[in-house]
Amino acid sequence: MTHTRADYPLAETRPGAVTGKHGKALPEITLDAVLAGEVTMEDLRITPQALQAQADVARDVGRPTLALNFERGAELVEVPQDFIMQVYELLRPGRAKSKEELLEAAATMRGTYQAERIARFIEEAAETYAARGLFTFRF
């Protein structure tokens, strides 16, 4: 389903439908549950579904670029932190020595994590960096 501004804020309109990565819904995440050891950091992580819902809302209120960022974010939810930081590092100036290094990262995003938008985004960066000479050696 596509969400609209009427569904916002999700935590108020449908708290039961807002869940963490392990499926625990908002009302279940109580202090007592935390104290009983039933809540981990993974239960406090946003899901791709929630980000897609926020993307829908953003689009509905006329913010298409914000929506796209949420959708790129949704693709990164499952990507491990280390790989995210590795790709971020690679996107910084002069880190990748050639276009291929970035294209390889894009391929992993696409192949391993089904992160199609992210992959295209990295490919676009690769093309731009090549055009602007960003693969030059930095001391």
Binding site: L10, G20, R45, Q54, F70
Partner: peptide, 8 residues
């Protein structure tokens, strides 16, 4: 951060 409402 679960609902992401505050990301808007």
């Amino acid at each position: 951060r679960l609902s992401g409402d505050y990301l808007q």
